[in-house]
Design a protein around this nucleic acid. Structure first.
Lengths: 230, 230
DNA sequence: CGTCTTCTTGAGCCACTTCAAGGTAAGTGG
DNA sequence: CCACTTACCTTGAAGTGGCTCAAGAAGACG
């Protein structure tokens, strides 16, 4: 189920769809930009598994197009989406030999793979690569802390934070095209799908956002959103 | 308020109070065990600030005795305790030039300091140190993910997870001496102090734990606790 | 002993969940 | 082009787990 059907070699790193990402995350590009670290780009269909929790962690991944969710599940099926990864983002650089989370494509995606062993080998003799590997993980950690802080907030505040984050990461204007479903959002924010839907409706009623389509959202009042975000 | 009053140089790394920690965390000791990375041990009183959020991150810290909490606060005062650090644990190795969280001693503590700049310099020419620095951060990340998963659980499940974690980290037997207050536990688990207290009482009534003193807890039925933990 | 802090317990309330139904959009086959 | 299906999203009504407010108990300490 994990194995993709085709394998395309790239001579150079592909730029993500959003042009500005390269500016924001130099470290990721350092890692994937090195000639010796060139990997393979693979297509993953919607909901396709990239890797499973506790599977051997042989690769580090970079989203070229589409989007990915990483998550953990409890025995009774409750799911916590740890993070969303958008074009330009790197994921799967967990410590140890096994992945800590599962990863799935949330829409049809192109994903670049690089062997972990190769990265580690290069890092051993190249302090710059080693440092960028560390920065990568440290940035993830910062996000994770921010996420923990989010999970003590009210539903409105969580949605505000989420929308602002998404807007910053995947849009230039105030209009956002969310790649993920309401269920995904709910599982990321620690809410139910109904509460997510209702809260979005509240934000629409307060003229803070507009819902052009269910996944096409306009942030018409960023100031109030930021205020809600604390 | 941050500045400690005295400065004691140590020739070698001090072993933490709990003897087994060295076995569990070789990387931390590698980092602090190097001759060139020897630092200074400082005493911090109860509730003393070790560093504040957004302060320059000049040091990496290791708990020798006592305990530390790292946390973030929202503008209205709500606090999320990101993590507790017990003897043998390393903290403060945040990325970037500023700390992401604040850190305070939860009881009178001895803390070992090492200059970040020194660590980074050593890491540049010593891949082993670089890797152990990365492993340190990656372990933090794993914990943070586990913590996010905890925050979607019920109050009982959160307490069960917390107690099991604490028992594993600071006791050999089934008896645990918690260094932190109910308020600290509440702010770590995303609950109120009242809910923490009530839930502990429930666990006592179910004969799953015993409360010898308010901070002295016996896990008399680990099996049920583990089950609650999922 | 009194004072201060910390912890526990009670009663009522509220934000979010649960359960249930209906609506909307995209795809499929006739 | 339309009926049918399927997946996804929204809305309503009722229930509840944890919160808020309030008071009291248990330690710690001078």
């Amino acid at each position: 189920m994990t194995t993709p059907m085709s394998l395309v070699q790239f001579a150079t790193d592909r730029m993500p769809q959003t042009g500005t990402v390269a500016m924001r995350r130099p470290d990721h590009h350092l890692l994937f930009g090195r000639v010796e670290l060139n990997g393979a780009a693979l297509p993953f269909g919607r909901n396709a598994e990239v890797y499973g929790e506790e599977e051997p962690a042989d690769y580090i991944y970079k989203v070229l197009s589409g989007g990915v969710r990483t998550y953990k599940v409890l025995s009774d099926g409750r799911r916590q989406i740890i993070g969303f990864y958008l074009p330009g983002d790197v994921f799967g650089s967990d410590p140890g030999d096994e992945h800590q989370c599962s990863a799935e494509a949330i829409v049809d995606s192109q994903i670049l793979l690089v062997r972990r062993a190769t990265v580690f080998k290069v890092a051993e003799r190249d302090a710059e690569v080693a440092r960028s590997l560390w920065t990568l993980t440290a940035t993830e950690l910062r996000r994770s802390h921010q996420h923990a802080l989010l999970l003590i907030k009210s539903a409105q505040e969580r949605l505000a934070a989420f929308l602002l984050d998404m807007a910053e990461r995947l849009s230039t204007k105030n209009s956002v095209e969310l790649p993920m479903s309401r269920q995904d959002i709910a599982d990321h924010l620690g809410l139910t799908i109904e509460t997510v839907s209702r809260t979005l409706t509240q934000l629409v009623d307060s003229s803070i956002i507009q819902l052009l389509a269910s996944r096409r959202i306009v942030l018409s009042n960023r100031a109030v959103l930021s205020e809600l975000n604390g």
